[in-house]
Design a protein around this nucleic acid. Structure first.
Lengths: 121, 121
DNA sequence: TTATTAGCTTACTTTTGGTAAGTAAAGGTA
DNA sequence: TACCTTTACTTACCAAAAGTAAGCTAATAA
């Protein structure tokens, strides 16, 4: 009863779940990785850089990342509008962990693919 | 053109995306964390431990984790059946990275919640 | 008049997750 | 004999979430 499994099993109120869900989606980590390399990027730059994302999903992704304080949005009062996105400190502190997952995924990709193929047979 | 953004932007063929998608779902990390603590667990133990998962989703989750070689399924020829799940070496090698994300989520949870609230206003 | 930028809106499709029921096999109970 | 239990699932169906494509907006410059 008093063990530490409890902290995972209450899915609804779990802080971890609550946070990880936000960048466990299809695009968020991609945006974070790109901003880590590019310092600042504009909306259309990101849109061109991420092959296959729609404008709507990019807008939604940027908005939730901003709401969570992981990226900073700077808007310039110009016409046509100019908006720049960059990592916040909080976002930068998350990035090493994502990079580690990326490294893990890269080193284990081939073996996992093999497992998947042989699992089907 | 020869920069290293390319390795992220081709979403369809991206090995990272391909791998991370598999445990970026609703339940997989939860199962991995539980197996890390418990060494071995049976189907119904997991079902009881994870508040809110359906039998179907647990079965699907365990199957894909097994297909990727992250967990090992051992079946005993008894009636009623007994099936035990445990982490594989590959699964164990992934776990520290997940734990790091969990730690990050826990330390940043309060601040992120605040950001979310003030973002709405 | 058209292009530009950073979106928003609408309608639609796809993917994911959830519910409820059923199945198998052997043994125990009435 | 009929039926109830347990375990580890599978199946059929349904709802919700995520994603897509296309069109709309603003103000200005070419």
């Amino acid at each position: 009863m008093g063990n530490n499994l409890e902290k995972y099993t209450d899915v609804v109120n779990c802080p971890v779940r609550n946070v990880l869900d936000r960048f466990g989606d299809k695009w968020s980590t991609l945006v974070l990785l790109l901003l880590d390399e590019a310092a600042v990027m504009r909306f259309n730059e990101l849109h061109k850089a991420i092959n296959g994302i729609s404008q709507k999903m990019l807008a939604v992704t940027l908005k939730t990342l901003e709401a969570d304080g992981l990226i900073i949005r700077t808007q310039y009062p110009e016409i046509p509008p100019r908006v720049e996105y960059k990592l916040s400190e909080r976002g930068s502190s998350l990035l090493p962990h994502i990079q580690n997952l990326v490294k893990w995924a890269n080193t284990n990709f081939d073996a996992i693919e093999e497992s998947r193929v042989s699992y089907k047979r």
